[in-house]
Structures are given as C-alpha cells and as structure tokens.
Design a protein around this nucleic acid. Sequence first.
DNA 1: ATAAAATATTCTATTGCAGGAATATTCCCC
DNA 2: GGGGAATATTCCTGCAATAGAATATTTTAT
Lengths: 116, 116
Amino acid sequence: MVAAIDYFKENGFKTFTALGEPNRLAIVELLREGELTVGQIADKLEMRQPQASKHLRVLSDNGLVEVTADANRRIYKINPEPFLTLESWLKTFKQQTEERYDKLDDYLKKIKNKKD
Amino acid sequence: MVAAIDYFKENGFKTFTALGEPNRLAIVELLREGELTVGQIADKLEMRQPQASKHLRVLSDNGLVEVTADANRRIYKINPEPFLTLESWLKTFKQQTEERYDKLDDYLKKIKNKKD
DNA sequence: ATAAAATATTCTATTGCAGGAATATTCCCC
DNA sequence: GGGGAATATTCCTGCAATAGAATATTTTAT
C-alpha cells in the first residue's frame, strides 16, 4: 500500500492526465457499468471508431483499462488497481489535513490558555 | 453529495487536468504539509517564480487551492472540497464494480448448478 | 478465396499547454 | 516618495496532444 502511494506521488500525474480529457473520463464512466467493445463505446459516446480506439489506447497505456480479445473484437474493462491506489492516496491526504488541523487546534488552545 | 458527484461526472476532468502535470501534483503534495507562499513553493520545487505562479493559477482556477493575501505575499493552501468529491466518486465507483462482480458470481453459480 | 466487419495505426493539420524572459503591479521600509 | 521584495501577467516559442481521414490488419462468414 505504502509503496503504491509513494509510486503514485511520483507517477500519479499520468493517471490524472489520462482522466483529464472529457471523452476519456466518459469512457471510464461508461465502463463502470460493464465491459464493452470499441464499437459499443464509440456508439454510445457518439465518437468515431478511430478516436475511441486512440483514447482507449491512452487509458490502456496508463493502466486504467484492460483489454481482452474476442475474435474480431476487443473487449475493454476497468482495471480497478489504479483507482484503488488513488483512493488510498486521498485517504492519506485527508488524514494529513486532519492532523494539521489538530495541531492548529492544540496551538489555539495554548494561546487561549495563556490569555486566561 | 449526489449532486456533487453528478457534477463531477460532467466536469471532473478539469480536476484531473489540473493534477495531470508533474509540477502541479508536486505543489499539491507540498501543500498537504501546510500552507506556503509562492516563493516558498518555487524554492522547494526548484522552479522559477513565474512558473510557480502560473501553476498555482491553474490549480486555483480549478478550485484545488485557495489563496489568502498577506500584504506582499500570497499564501496558498489546499481546498479540501474537490478532493472529498473525488473520494466520493471513487467510492461509488468501487461500489458499482463490486455489484457487477456479485452479479457475475450469481451467474457463474447458476451455470455451475445447471452442470451438476 | 473473397468480402465484410471490427479494430488499430498512420499521417496531417490544428490547437493547447508549458517554459523562458521580460515587464507590470502591489506592498513594505527607510 | 523612492527602492526593493513578492507576485502576477504578457508575449513568444516549441512541443505535445487531439481530431479527421485514410489505410492497414485481423477475423469471420460464405
């Protein structure tokens, strides 16, 4: 877990870059409901097949989705791992923020006591 | 909460875009430890002041950080809200994925029973 | 073997974004 | 009020990313 988060701090921007494009985020939203072929994705999002393929390539290169071949077709689905890592990162994030507020609290209490 | 997530599905890519740049993610990492001025950020990350300002502008425009003026200086700190929204999104995400796996489980059990 | 379907890749043009250097703005101090 | 800090903004340039169109590749069906 910790190692994954350390890695994320260095390389996590790639995850964000991949998700930082409207069509790709839409693809991810779509794949949450289940796996889909390229054609299905292109249809539902009203984009041309090559663009769908290219966006899926980016998502795949960055580990956000996985492909399995079914004859002619490529079935794409979410790879949960980077999302779990992201969630862990956010948790340590929140934790740290809370710690800081606690320290601030302590500090303010001290100040107040001095005044009393 | 739900409204925030719906909004996120449409506009969340902006959050990702803002974080999808190494220097900006580094700034966010830095600000987790406490608020900092522009100069301090530029120093610690070994970047020139204008670049620091520009990255902070992007982060600010997308609501990831907040500024307060202290005379000459601008003090930047994390705005927790978008991170909390992101965390909520990831939670519904995981939930949905698990539901799908449960359904798959049920399906596989059915298949197996038929074979028996 | 050929045709058609599904997908990936390439090429090209355009746009957007990041860095560098210079400049503007605001504030403090003497 | 003049100089120096701290920060923001502007302009320019170069590079990376995106869309579109065309083409290549693989697989199935006949």
